[in-house]
Amino acid sequence: MTISVCTLAHGRETHLANLIAGLSRSQRRPDELVIAVMQPLRYDLPEAPFPIRQIMMGTSDIPLAAARNAAAGAARGEFLIFLDVDCIPAPSLVGDYARAGNEDEGVIMGEVAYLPKGATDGGIDFPAFDRLGVTHSERPGPPPSGLRACEDYRCFWSLNFALPARDFATIGGFDERYDGYGGEDTDFGRMVVEAGLPLWWVKGAKAYHQYHPHHMPPVHHLDSVLANAMAFAEKWGEPTMQHWLRAFVLMGLIERTEHGWRKLREAEETDLALTRQQEHQPYASSAVVLDWLEANAEAA
């Protein structure tokens, strides 16, 4: 079975170099790495013991759905592993996915450990990453061993997943009506189910998420979240990203109308400060912010 690793990148040159360095240390190396480049210039990449191809998207925006489709469309492998540019794969990740992919069809989601700021300053150090990495409090943990069915498509997570190329084609890829940030993951999970394919969590296939400043809920992507929430509701007849939308309402950024959601104002520095990932945090938490907003709304 030939294996292609697919990623998409905009900036974050050091993160991408670390992803390549991690893949280079794989116990089973991929047959290629395909990068969908969401910036005007190609990356100056380190040497690697496998082919690397850069697919230029011709944009400086972040068309996440289209970029994943472009990487998958250019991939030559029979089995596709998708990693976000922030991920450093553990030495066993490629092999773990290959074994799981031989067991069953469908989409497989591996483990993710979030690294604190500075964890990669000394280079690739997997024992240190295992000591420092933490799991996300808002994501399900892996099964004790092997595969476990994911019963809720809304849990699909594109950060670290894999599937046979034929299954990606059956699903139809990511819906490119979702432009920018928000909603395309949940839509893809729904399309997996609609295609009659299973979603799996797997023990192993671990990726280490490199620190970067972020906002949760993503007020810096307010416009695309609103547009993509409307697209999801029109397509499936039900809402998505409701926890983010609820937070935006409590922050006074949006209101709900009979026709959907309406933006009231742009995010300001106070909103960014509330949602900003602090330097001591390995990841930003929507739940913490939403709990704070709900508590303050009740006290008002």
Rank of each mutant, 00 (worst) to 15 (best):
T2L: 04
I3A: 08
H10N: 08
H10I: 05
N18L: 13
L19Q: 15
L19K: 15
S24W: 03
L33R: 04
V34F: 07
I35K: 07
A36M: 03
R42M: 11
Y43A: 05
P49N: 10
P51H: 12
R53F: 11
Q54C: 07
I55G: 00
M56D: 14
G58P: 12
A66K: 15
A67I: 00
A70D: 00
A72C: 11
A75I: 03
R76T: 14
G77T: 01
F79G: 01
A90R: 00
V94F: 03
R99Y: 10
V107W: 04
V107Y: 04
G110I: 05
V112F: 02
Y114Q: 12
L115P: 13
D121P: 09
I124H: 01
F129T: 01
D130W: 12
V134Y: 01
E138S: 13
R139T: 08
R139F: 12
G141V: 08
P144W: 00
P144L: 11
C155K: 08
F156C: 08
S158I: 01
S158P: 14
F161V: 06
D167L: 05
A169V: 03
F174A: 04
D175H: 05
E176Y: 02
E176P: 06
F188W: 10
V193W: 01
V193H: 02
E194I: 04
L197D: 06
A205P: 13
A205Q: 13
V225C: 09
L226N: 03
M230A: 08
E234Q: 07
W236N: 07
M241N: 05
Q242M: 14
H243C: 01
R246H: 09
R246P: 06
A247Y: 02
V249A: 03
L253D: 04
E258D: 13
K263L: 07
L264Q: 05
E266Q: 13
T270M: 12
D271H: 11
L274T: 05
T275S: 14
R276L: 07
Q277L: 11
H280M: 14
Q281H: 15
P282D: 07
S286K: 12
A287R: 11
V289K: 04
V289M: 02
L290S: 06
W292K: 14
A295K: 09
A297F: 10
E298S: 15
